[in-house]
Write a protein that binds this DNA or RNA. Structure first.
Length: 477
RNA sequence: GGCCCGGUCGCCUAGCGGUCUAGGGCGCUUCCCUUUCAAGGAAGAGGUCAUGGGUUCGAAUCCCAUCCGGGCUACCA
């Protein structure tokens, strides 16, 4: 039996980083098995929460990560359609089947009555749960009323007993039936609830195993009961722990960026995100840290997934990102950088600085500020940076003017020659090379830190370098 | 409140009854390298394995209780 796994997002917004983690685990398993299949299914049964464009952003986000799947809304497949709102007749027929078999029943309670009931239960300090008011209406009467009265279909949960699963991650878990209410399966608008749709779809699409977030654990008994009602055998389940915010709660917008497109915009690499994400809640059991997505496919074992939630650690993500940036070839890095730099910046020149800033970047977005001095003629100089600590303005002007002279006729205007020239000037004026480079860097780049100075000067070109050195002398004086 | 899950350095984690005086990575500190900043290299601080009881010759590892944290508790998913 080959692996058939799925990820089933609701198109209620853009892709959340936590669900990407779960999707990654599904992906690893699907690719590990040569005959494995990954299925994308859209769970849009809540029509009120639909967000237009969400489907596109799910597709874009997943593709960005390098995740490919085999069956889905746009890809088609043997179990189409893969969008729940297009499968309505299926759910309705199945729900009626359950009613006919006395495993479910029509319920005519209004939302108002349910609200009142809940309020009363709460006031009495009881568990809030459907009181099974409609459970014992004679089936014939109920069927007749259902013809023209608004209604839902509820599952007839057995009075006692237990249901349980052997979760691939959490092990054996059991729930007493008396804690489970008669779940709504089909809403009054004819749409299925998640609980019904997910079971029918996973069954029809032959999903095995089901891998999903830990937050679904409490609704597993409800699903199990639906499987039972249909007489189906539930597939193996694997729940994976949540990705948590710094406060230990489920990662959400109030913890900062959580959407894939935000990370793309901030200049994170998919390689780094995959690597980082995979290691929250799973470990290969070795001391290695850096993995490509393909390596993860071969290493990943669902049984090694943890039971405890893991916190999101931005510093660690940044470290992974730096690692992956440094693993890129210069040409590849140039390609990735493209979207983060103004279109008018000369790519030939950018290509030449790339090696100089490669190990100075943690995100792609940082590159722009680091190399901006190379582009355009105007440069904002900061007088306070121009004069090194413990040096006099006058001496600085002298040093800078000597450097200007030394660089003017240097041939070629290349890093090694520049280095020699600057060393000579430093010796000449009795300054440390360090202090002299501080002043020159400030003059030429306007900043305190940046890529290596001699290479930067060479790339800047003699004309602009001299111009800026002279401007700096004026500014000080 | 009820049900379920969890608890190893600040964070991600190794560990699955003895090799643990608890290992690695991030972050932090110091040093080396050095034209700045990084990167890289080296060293270091940091954990009474939530707590208390058992079981055992032996427990981070098994059992129980307690505490703390989280999730769920909808005609949301």
């Amino acid at each position: 039996m080959s692996v058939r796994v799925r990820f089933a997002p609701s198109p209620t917004g853009s892709l959340h980083i936590g669900s990407v983690r779960t999707t990654l685990y599904n992906y690893f398993l699907a690719r590990k098995d040569a005959a494995g299949r990954l299925i994308l299914r859209l769970e849009d049964t809540d029509q009120e929460r639909l967000v237009p464009g969400a489907i596109d952003s799910i597709y874009d986000g997943l593709h960005w990560f390098g995740i490919r799947w085999d069956e889905g809304p746009r890809e088609g497949g043997p179990h189409a359609p893969y969008v729940q709102s297009e499968r309505l007749p299926l759910y309705q027929a199945r729900a009626r089947e359950l009613v006919a078999g006395a495993a479910a029943y029509f319920c005519f309670c209004t939302k108002e009555r349910l609200a009142q009931m809940r309020a009363a239960q709460q006031a009495r300090g009881e568990i809030t749960r459907y009181d099974r008011h409609c459970r014992d209406i004679p089936p014939a009467d109920a069927a007749a009323r259902a013809k023209d009265e608004p209604h839902v279909i509820r599952l007839k949960v057995p009075e006692e007993g237990t249901v349980g699963i052997d979760d691939l991650v959490y092990g054996h878990i059991e729930w007493p039936l008396n804690a489970i209410e008669d779940q709504v399966l089909l809403k009054s608008d004819g749409f299925p609830t998640y609980q019904l749709a997910v079971v029918i779809d996973d069954h029809d699409m032959k999903i095995d195993p089901i891998i999903r977030g830990e937050e679904w654990l409490p609704s597993t008994p409800k699903h199990l009961l639906v499987y039972q009602a249909f007489g189906w055998t539930p597939p193996p389940h694997a729940h994976v722990p949540n990705v948590l915010g710094p406060d230990g709660k489920k990662l959400s917008k109030r913890h900062g960026a959580t959407q894939v497109d935000e990370f793309i915009r901030e200049g994170y690499l998919p390689e780094a995100m995959v690597n980082f994400l995979a290691l929250i809640g799973w470990s290969p059991g070795t001391e290695e840290e850096i993995f490509t997505i393909d390596e993860l496919v071969t290493r990943f074992q669902i049984e090694q997934v943890h039971t405890a939630g893991g916190k999101w650690d931005r510093d660690r993500l940044d470290w992974f990102n730096g690692q992956w940036i440094r693993r890129l070839s210069d040409d590849e890095l140039l390609r990735r950088l493209d979207a983060f730099l103004p279109a008018e910046w000369d790519r030939g020149l950018v290509r030449q600085v790339v090696p100089l800033i490669k190990e100075r970047m943690r995100t792609l977005a940082e590159a722009k500020d680091q190399i901006a001095f190379l582009f355009g003629d105007r440069l904002e100089q900061d007088r306070s940076l121009l004069v090194p600590k413990k040096r006099e303005p006058g001496d600085t002007v002298t040093a800078l003017s000597r450097a200007t002279v030394a660089l003017r006729f240097l041939d070629p205007f290349a890093p090694e020659r520049i280095e020699q020239a600057i060393a000579a000037v430093a010796a000449d004026v009795g300054w440390t090379v360090r202090d002299l480079t501080i002043a020159i860097r400030a003059a030429v780049t306007g900043r305190k830190v940046g890529p290596p100075l001699y290479e930067s000067l060479a790339l800047l070109g003699r004309a602009r370098a001299l111009e800026r050195l002279e401007a700096a002398q004026e500014l000080i004086g």
